[in-house]
Design a protein around this nucleic acid. Sequence first.
DNA 1: CATTGCGTTAGAGCGCGCTCTAACACCTAG
DNA 2: CTAGGTGTTAGAGCGCGCTCTAACGCAATG
Lengths: 144, 144
Amino acid sequence: MTSWTISQVAEKSGLSAHTLRWYERIGLLDRVERGPDGRRRYSEADLEWVVLLNNLRTTGMRVRDMQRYAELVRSGGGEAERMDLLEQHRELVLQSLAQQEACLRVLDRKIKTYRRRQSETQAGPEPASTEGAAAECAPPTLVT
Amino acid sequence: MTSWTISQVAEKSGLSAHTLRWYERIGLLDRVERGPDGRRRYSEADLEWVVLLNNLRTTGMRVRDMQRYAELVRSGGGEAERMDLLEQHRELVLQSLAQQEACLRVLDRKIKTYRRRQSETQAGPEPASTEGAAAECAPPTLVT
DNA sequence: CATTGCGTTAGAGCGCGCTCTAACACCTAG
DNA sequence: CTAGGTGTTAGAGCGCGCTCTAACGCAATG
């Protein structure tokens, strides 16, 4: 088997068949080859490309930027430019990951604080419900 | 200064004034106190809550879920439930981070491969432009 | 033969999270 | 007294990324 149906590619890539067709329509994929019955037959290369697209999306690249990238690939040249695009994206992903990790740490602190208070409360009377005040935590964008 | 204007809170939290008003409208914040001129005066607690909201959003919590959380806080009780919600969210964030990191590693590999090929090309003739095939990389959802 | 299932197309629709607008109110500076 | 800046409200609008629909084709099955 050297080519795949759309539902096979959907399953393998995690994208829906709808999305695969849509990606093709908007130029993220070159026109995929059709069989004699008019149905798409994805090549191995198509599949790999789809998987790459999914990687880019999963890391938050915009569809518009994937289109630019696809356009560069399609036009054959501009390898350096393509790599710049990828590396630029890489930087953004790193930033975004760092940001999320920072926020996660803050949430962790909050959960811990809460759990601690909860066990104290278990041994004592009402915790005076000083809630609404809620978040004694470090900011993502820096507070005060 | 024990209270803040909307633009101050906007700057400190990273959310726009528009968004702050909208968050209040949809119940993510309790009604913020107004000064004699009808303008919002955010308390320290308000600010901290806004910052928490921003943390939750940054880590990808849906507005709908933040509303549920806010509702729990508003109703005073349900601390355990609240913590469950946070811990559940924590798990999702961890998953999402792992996924993104995996995709990032794949991109890194691709960039490296590309750069290697590029330097080879520099020393040799045309690289036979076997492109379009593009992505020889591991899948996010597992391939084949 | 009719049904079932999978595919095709172009285009409409949707959920999300803002973001902007219009019309108005107030305060301060020049 | 005007003009500018900052705020208020309710509601409309928007960009994104799908996701679904309608109408149809084709092949295999009972």
